[in-house]
Design a protein around this nucleic acid. Structure first.
Lengths: 195, 195
DNA sequence: CAATTTTTTGAACATATATTCAAAAATAAA
DNA sequence: TTTATTTTTGAATATATGTTCAAAAAATTG
């Protein structure tokens, strides 16, 4: 990648990050191109030099968040840990990432509302992949006798819901820092699968 | 209330219900006055005979949902049941109501995004009231020795998150009807507080 | 039935914001 | 430094949808 290409890539990423931050705070529709641009001291017009349209920018933002989530979980899964600790770590990493990016809102909503066609397909695929990792982890934990028998799909969704909900009530001014909170939540959730 | 007043009240309620249904499906911003009206074979212009503006209509929709939720939980709380069964029933009723109204989306989001001033105050008050009921129920259950010691706030939020998330993944075509699903979820969640 | 009141209509209007684009500015290449 | 290329700008445009309103239709009343 040439120097110029790198610069373009960086600008794109800056815009995506700006979009993520504001969308996380205000939601898809209330986030204007104006705001996304002005956060980087640009005018909205120049966003169109990098992205086809708003949809394109938002799509790429969501895609990056989901890809990062998948990378996060893949890394944890590859570690050599007992099932209970591994599941716990998966949860902690998930919650911490969510709080840092405040990305829960859009991620959580049904993407059908925002995307369609090929874009929707990709988003759903990434979501599915993530969900499957967790379902898989639970299933294996059960099989290996670490966890009690459960309906993996339902329990997976309970866990995802409880975690993703955090963005609606977590306050950085609260008594707990995000790591302590993440650990506490995962401990409670672990009780669902432990024998 | 005169006959005429009753008719007006009914029309208002019809509009509110129509709004709830579409907002539950599409979200706040994607729901147009046009759609809300056309569901009742009206034109959007005539909504303004009943409501000041879109904000007013949407606010009243959300308010009614929250008020109904509070009534639901109050009824369960007043029943004479052991703590574990009572908490379970609270959860089942919550999930069933959520699925029926598909109201999770807007309810879940931070209302700061949609409301302000007196409206926001009322919405937050209703949400708080609901949350407090659950926190209270958990705290009492602990005190009476039915439940194990937990951080009631965190556990309350875990439970709310897991439940509210259901709207994002429940499908009426799935293998479980909503009652079976609601029972299953509450059983798993109960494990968090049981000794 | 005639007069009055309520309700609906549909077009006109207002507004917000996404998008386009020609020109200017900044950057890189020669 | 001159020329060519990339990037930004800001105004103009397009569009979608909330809102208003005078007139028509429907319902009610006496």
């Amino acid at each position: 990648m040439s120097l110029r290409e790198k610069k373009v890539a960086k600008r794109k990423k800056d815009l995506i990050m700006s979009a993520i931050a504001i969308i996380g705070e205000k939601g898809y529709h209330s986030t204007t191109m104006e705001e996304i641009a002005s956060k980087l001291l640009m005018t909205k017009g120049s966003i169109y030099y990098y992205f086809k349209d708003k949809q394109d920018l938002v799509y790429q933002s969501q895609k990056i968040l989901l890809e990062q989530s998948n990378e996060n979980i893949e890394e944890v899964l590859s570690e050599d840990l007992p099932y209970d600790e591994k599941l716990k770590k998966v949860m902690v990493v998930h919650i911490e990432y969510l709080i840092t990016e405040q990305s829960g809102f859009v991620m959580g909503t049904n993407p059908e509302q925002f995307f369609s066609g090929k874009q929707l397909e990709t988003i759903l695929m990434l979501r599915d992949r993530y969900g499957n990792y967790i379902k898989q982890l639970i299933a294996e934990g059960v099989k290996e006798g670490f966890f009690t028998e459960v309906d993996e799909k339902i329990v997976r969704n309970i866990i995802l819901g409880a975690m993703n909900w955090v963005v609606t009530w977590y306050s950085p001014n609260g008594p707990m820092d995000k790591t302590t909170l993440a650990k506490s939540i995962s401990n409670y959730l672990l009780k669902i699968v432990l024998k």
